[in-house]
């Protein structure tokens, strides 16, 4: 029995060593840096001043809290809207074979597209010098392309939200199509024969049935969009700035002391995402216990 256990531990050791060294080692070293421990520049003292500076100092507090607000807004709005678009898209086309094939193809094409490419696409299409602005100007809807509403590089993060919707709706769509196909139409047909109208079938049948998968996918998308750097860097403005961009700028700062702030900001982003994931698991476990 003991020999068997030792065998299991020994066979698990190599992969666990790699995981612990690369993943937890990196996190631990980053955490140490966020506490001010930087031997390379002669800083050995451990304290929370980087966290304090980022969140409460006169210099950074406003940047941090508006950035956090923008982060939450962009992540919630883009996750919610991408899920809604994907849900209605999937419901609209799931019964039509031809549209389903075409849409599946288009969405599948969108999935491997890098976020950076999508962000550039958003600039080409939605900026004031973009395709839509020129088109609207050409057909006389607006006087000149400059009159087109500011959708890219705006302070509300609309361009960033658009890019995430464009990209993540495909992810939601693929998940929803597979869930809807596995569910079939029997539940809806049953509800219909029990007197449920179209809205009631959506509200009381489809939504509760797809919600567990939709919720899981939303957590993944939210966590990603909350911590991602490239799209906000390309489509965002200098103020307010989303937290990952702000963290990266701390790292680019020629003053190496600013690295602690950058790392503190990264740890804060990670903690927020982790709290969210823990909350999600707590919710699902509570539901399993309740059932």
């Amino acid at each position: 029995m003991g020999g068997e256990r030792l065998k299991i531990i020994l066979s698990l050791t190599p992969p666990l060593l790699i995981i612990f060294t690369l993943f937890f080692g990196g996190i631990f070293y980053g955490f140490l840096q966020s506490l001010g421990y930087q031997p390379a520049i002669g800083k050995y003292e451990i304290n929370f001043s980087a966290y304090y500076n980022v969140m409460f100092s006169e210099r950074y507090a406003k940047l941090f809290w508006t950035g956090l607000g923008l982060n939450l807004w962009v992540s919630f709005a883009s996750t919610f809207l991408a899920a809604v678009f994907a849900l209605f898209g999937a419901l609209a086309i799931r019964k039509t074979f031809f549209a389903k094939t075409i849409c599946n193809f288009i969405y599948s094409l969108n999935l491997p597209m890098p976020h950076l490419v999508v962000a550039v696409g958003i600039i080409f299409v939605f900026s004031q010098s973009g395709l839509l602005a020129r088109l609207a100007s050409q057909i006389g809807l607006i006087g000149s392309p400059g009159d087109f509403p500011v959708l890219v590089k705006d302070k509300y993060g609309l361009g960033i939200i658009l890019a995430y919707i464009w990209k993540e709706a495909a992810f939601f769509f693929i998940i929803l199509m597979s869930v809807l196909q596995s569910l079939g139409e029997n539940f809806e047909e049953l509800a219909q024969s029990l007197g449920a109208n179209r809205w009631q079938r959506f509200r009381y049948v489809i939504l509760p049935l797809v919600m567990p998968n939709l919720f899981s996918a939303s957590i993944i998308v939210f966590a990603f969009s909350f911590g991602a750097y490239e799209v906000p860097a390309l489509l965002g403005v200098i103020y307010p700035q989303m937290l990952p961009v702000m963290a990266f700028e701390f790292f680019l700062n020629p003053d190496l002391n600013a690295r602690s702030e950058g790392m503190a900001l990264s740890i804060i982003i990670a903690i927020i995402v982790m709290i969210l994931v823990v909350f999600y698991f707590w919710l699902t476990q509570a539901k399993i216990r309740k059932d």
Partner: peptide, 29 residues
């Protein structure tokens, strides 16, 4: 339309709504 016919079907595999309890299932209509 189906929902107004007053014709109710019980499916072969019962199809109780898994997220509702028995009371909620029975009271659905």
């Amino acid at each position: 339309p189906t929902e107004k016919r007053g014709v109710v079907m019980v499916f072969q595999n019962y199809l109780l709504f898994p997220y509702m309890n028995v009371n909620e299932n029975v009271g659905f209509a």
